[in-house]
Amino acid sequence: MTGFLVRRILGALVILLIISAVTFYLFYAIPRDPARAFCGKICRPETLTLIRHNLGMDEPLFVQYWHWLVGIFAGRDFVQFGACPAPCLGYSFATQEPVFGAIVDRFPVTLSLTIGASAVILSFGILTGMLAAWKVGQPLDKIASASSVVGASLQIYFVGPLLAFYLVDTAGLLPRPSYVAFTEDPLGWFTHLLLPWVVLSIIFTANYTRMTRSQMVEQLAEDYVRTARAKGMSSRSVFFRFAWRGAMIPIITIFGVDLATLLGGAIITEQTFSLHGIGELAVRAVQNTDLPMLLGVTIVGAAAIVVLNIVVDVLYAVIDPRVRIG
């Protein structure tokens, strides 16, 4: 297990390195010069050169990338902004605030959103899928299948305002979504984020209901399930002790893939409910051609996905002993 984890973490670092390098390179492919933004209306060529130098943009691309990389671990000094202690992701071109600080401020919002929605998706999706499979062909199964089709065709920016209107404005059941720090007020954190979680999870949950159901039905036809029954195991223990494990393996795999989409959904959800998360930062960074911010957001987002994928892999190994050795 330890070797497995070490291998996965090393692999993850390589992936992050590649992602950051590609982002770095792509940004320079955009025909826009961020130095111009600092230069003001009347911009003399000498000033522009100076600004470029202060931003460190007059050096070859790979040197700039190297400085950026070293900054993360050792910190660095900017002529323009002054010292930037490690982990340094530079300063925003647009707001001049430290990128790392900005991300740290907003990260909990997006993380809460993603983790909460994952919990809703997995618990609710798997539960309803199991129920449907347990009662295959019966009314409960049909209801679950039908509602999953409806759920899958909904959109965040449609459901979000709609539910907000009914649950918050009309019925007053939930507070208007906002971010309350978990460490300060766990209950407030929960109630204020409940609506965004539900909205973000709706489209995914339906999918997981359907997958769980079909996976369970498939597993129940497997030889080893038949063996369990031939041993005298009751239908219930065959269902909940044998078949579910096999069914969860593809579900977890797909969840690992869905995480990136989920993060994308989190950004839309943030926008829908005006939550100040990473998504807002990302959108603004793109609008402003704010390289350090864009790079920071990209790398932190990628790191989050990579870490969550390692968690998924560990889960996978816990469920399936065959994975542990290979």
């Binding site: 497997e222 063996t227 369990a228 041993k231 005298g232 469920i319 399936d320 002993p321």
Partner: peptide
């Protein structure tokens, strides 16, 4: 207990988990 069965394919017939 009283009646037991051995299946043909021992790989797929045992639970991998």
């Amino acid at each position: 207990d009283r009646v037991a069965m051995i299946f043909q394919d021992p790989l797929t017939s045992l639970s991998p988990f």
